[in-house]
Design a binder for these strands. Structure first.
Lengths: 272, 272
DNA sequence: CAGTGGTCTAGACCACATG
DNA sequence: ATGTGGTCTAGACCACTGG
């Protein structure tokens, strides 16, 4: 039995202004045109997944638009709400949809693959118009390093370090989150130089470091923690790529230790 | 209401040989000791996930053992079968469990992280006892390259190539699957040299290539396809890491193009 | 055949965000 | 207060595997 509001809409086609959201978008009609093949090789929820994915990739429920509610869509597709949710949960994990409790489900921007070339600065790094990209500084301050960081930076664990958390965005959409740690003794003017342009390169140059390279990058996989998911606009348990890199100056002295977290489906790393 | 066989076991503790599988293992008792906190911040299925994961990481349901059936465990935990399945499905995606329809659910070997250093041969590459590792050749033969491979190998798309599919195993457990393509003209004696030791390095040396390096490695993320999942003993949609690498000889001429697929949770790549 | 995991539905309640 | 997504249960049927 479909929810009553859907039924009343159908029964009263004249009041088209009654509720805007209730109007079924064109893509929904085409999604629900053919019935699903029951008892086929491919489960119904996977068929739903296929259709949504193809549609989103074709760009019809465009980036950012809110989908109608679960009940409405489930009724339109003539499947149970839970079956629909199963398909959606996979679409969320794979980066096509993002859900906010109490609000709705939204189409994420296309999970474009960003080709990131290691051993270069970020903007030289990424395919696409540089103006589309932005940095958001989440936090900047002094602390003590954790043991691994102290080890990598070859400093005493009780030494002071600058800790910088930031995010890269493309078209308002988070691409990755990173935590960078620098030896404070080496960069006394960190905050004042960093503030104007949010540029770590500027800080390096202001302290006499002209050339720097990543000496080692560790890539591992995992699943987004609660805070990572919140920052990156993902559901928890979304698979992510984690990178841990050490940056050294021209003399091979470590000057930065950084940990990055990337939604698995949105990045492609190239090492040369 | 628990299944009847469980109830009868409890009522008849003397017949310990009645059915071996029905005996509840110790870890199950400890998992089901405390009731789950309802309406807490953490959903019940996530609490189940937590307990199983901790237990498996502690090694009690040890690698390879078959778990009792869903119905039995759900009854023991006093939750619905579907709630239990939700927890299990995440454990499967994360590599802790693997299910075989009609057979049962098994504990996978610990998703140990294999540190793989690029630019080296595999056995020099990996932490752990080399004797634990094995290669299984899945297929070896001549074909035509796909466009991307032809491009990377800088050969004509109609040229003949040697195509080799194989898998790495550690302790019988698949670590990764790879497809390697070589220009046949360069390695006419590929099959006869490869066969005895399953060594690509031997083939290279037999054809006068003493030194070779990876010139470029692309790392991207994705989800296991059906055949990848089957080979790697994963459920489909498990997140994987894909690597695409080109190997060149001492003169910079491409001699191999390889595509690898690694379960996300089982590998750690290091680039230096 | 019996047992296993896999799918699907129905209906209920909850927490959250918004008006 | 309403609508949203999130969780949980109950019960049913299916497909696969093995003895």
């Amino acid at each position: 039995m479909p929810p009553t509001d859907t039924a009343s809409d159908a029964a009263d086609p004249c009041s088209i202004t009654a509720r805007v959201r209730a109007a079924e978008p064109a893509w929904l009609n085409s999604l629900s045109a053919d019935p699903f093949v029951e008892r086929s090789k491919r489960a119904i929820w996977l068929q739903i997944y296929d259709r949504f994915r193809r549609s989103i990739e074709a760009g019809d429920p465009g980036a950012g638009v809110q989908l109608p509610g679960e009940h409405q869509i489930a009724a339109a597709l003539k499947v149970n709400r839970i079956t629909l949710r199963r398909a959606w949960s996979r679409l969320q994990r794979e980066g096509y949809l993002s859900a906010r409790k109490g609000v709705g489900v939204f189409v994420r921007r296309q999970p474009t693959l960003y080709t990131v070339t290691e051993n270069r600065g970020f903007l030289a790094n990424v395919d696409g118009d540089p103006r589309e990209f932005a940095v958001r500084t989440l936090s900047l301050g002094l602390t003590q390093p954790d043991p691994e960081t102290a080890d990598q930076l070859r400093i005493d664990p009780s030494a002071t370090v600058v800790r910088l958390e930031r995010m890269r965005l493309r078209l308002e959409q988070p691409i990755y989150r990173t935590e960078k740690v620098f030896p404070a003794a080496r960069f006394p003017r960190f905050e004042e130089v960093y503030a104007p342009g949010s540029s770590v390169g500027a800080v390096f140059r202001a302290h006499g470091v002209e050339r720097f390279t990543r000496s080692r990058t560790r890539v591992s996989g995992g699943f987004a923690t609660g805070s990572e998911a919140a920052d990156l606009d993902l559901t928890p348990t979304t698979p992510v790529l984690r990178t841990v890199a050490t940056v050294v100056d021209e003399n091979g002295i470590p000057i930065e230790h950084s940990r990055g977290c990337w939604p698995l489906t949105m990045v492609e790393l190239i090492f040369e």
